[in-house]
């Protein structure tokens, strides 16, 4: 990345005006992903001086995570560690090392729409919306479907406060590697949510399996197996150099069974990957 000029706006209005003034003007969050691109950026818009984009705030009905919050801040947050068995901080703690997580931001991760994102998967299984400066509120699924991505500034990730339990699994070959498959499962009063990521494309919900599971009065082995078969049928998996489609299918089935058994049996605060 080459930056001709670095600008540090102090308000969102100013930042948005700059962003839309020239096609090559680009928002810079942690800057770690942009650093690897070969782009030349006319005006780099550094968001670090906009305080409203930073930190995690617990409000009456929601938890707001500012887009410039670093992954480390989320990993250590006590409220988020309790929220749906802490699947979001657990997923984040598995991204690279402490140093990188001190630098990179949740907003940068979401806006990059990485296929391998370990954050998109849990967020799709949580009651979550995204707040943009210009577009207002979008559901996470609407955002993923938006192509091409509109030039806008992500303000916050909004998590609805609910009592729920969760399970997250990242399958990877080494500590620093991208996921071969990510799976997040949650259960609350509205039913089940199941998201699969690193398919290798960007995460998606297994909608049919979610609906089926949510309609069942009890979760027994037959129900769990049927839900896994439905997920395998509807979630599009593929090959890449990390793993084959066949291997990903085997992983999806295995961890879906384990996750559902886990949610069925354990106490609400245990979301640990098994």
């Amino acid at each position: 990345m080459n930056i001709d000029n670095l600008v540090k706006p102090t308000s969102l209005t100013e930042a948005y005006k700059l962003l839309t003034a020239d096609q090559s003007n680009t928002v810079i969050a942690g800057g770690a992903w942009l650093k690897m691109s070969k782009r030349t950026i006319k005006n780099g818009i550094d968001l670090t001086a906009i305080n409203s984009l930073k930190g995690i705030k617990e409000e009456a009905d929601v938890i707001r995570i500012g887009s410039m919050t670093t992954l480390s801040e989320i990993e250590r947050d006590e409220t988020l560690k309790q929220y749906y068995s802490g699947i979001l901080p657990q997923a984040i703690a598995q991204i690279m090392g402490v140093g990188l997580r001190n630098l990179v931001t949740i907003g940068g991760n979401i806006m990059s729409k990485h296929g391998f994102s370990d954050i998109a998967t849990p967020l799709l299984a949580l009651p979550c919306t995204l707040e943009f400066h210009h577009q207002g509120i979008l559901s996470f699924a609407e955002f993923i479907e938006q192509k091409p991505l509109k030039k806008d500034i992500l303000k916050a990730i909004i998590l609805e406060k609910q009592d729920g339990r969760g399970y997250f699994k990242k399958v990877k070959k080494t500590a620093l590697d991208f996921a071969i498959l990510n799976l997040a499962l949650t259960k609350d009063e509205n039913g089940f949510a199941l998201a699969i990521g690193s398919r290798p494309s960007i995460a998606m919900n297994a909608k049919e399996a979610e609906t089926y599971l949510s309609q069942q009065p009890i979760l027994n082995d037959t129900v769990i197996k049927k839900a896994a078969t439905m997920a395998l049928k509807h979630v599009k998996l593929g090959d890449n150099p990390r793993a084959s489609k066949a291997y990903r299918s085997a992983l999806l089935e295995t961890y879906m069974l384990r996750g559902l058994h886990h949610l069925n049996q354990t106490n609400p605060q245990e979301g640990a990957s098994k």
């Binding site: 650093k35 690279m96 090392g97 630098l103």
Partner: peptide, 22 residues
């Protein structure tokens, strides 16, 4: 590319990769 850790410095006592920090 922030993957190896040899460029680590402390910024306000927290480790960060200096290769990607403006």
């Amino acid at each position: 590319t922030t993957s190896c850790g040899v460029c680590t410095v402390l910024i306000d006592d927290q480790p960060m990769p200096s290769c990607a920090l403006l």
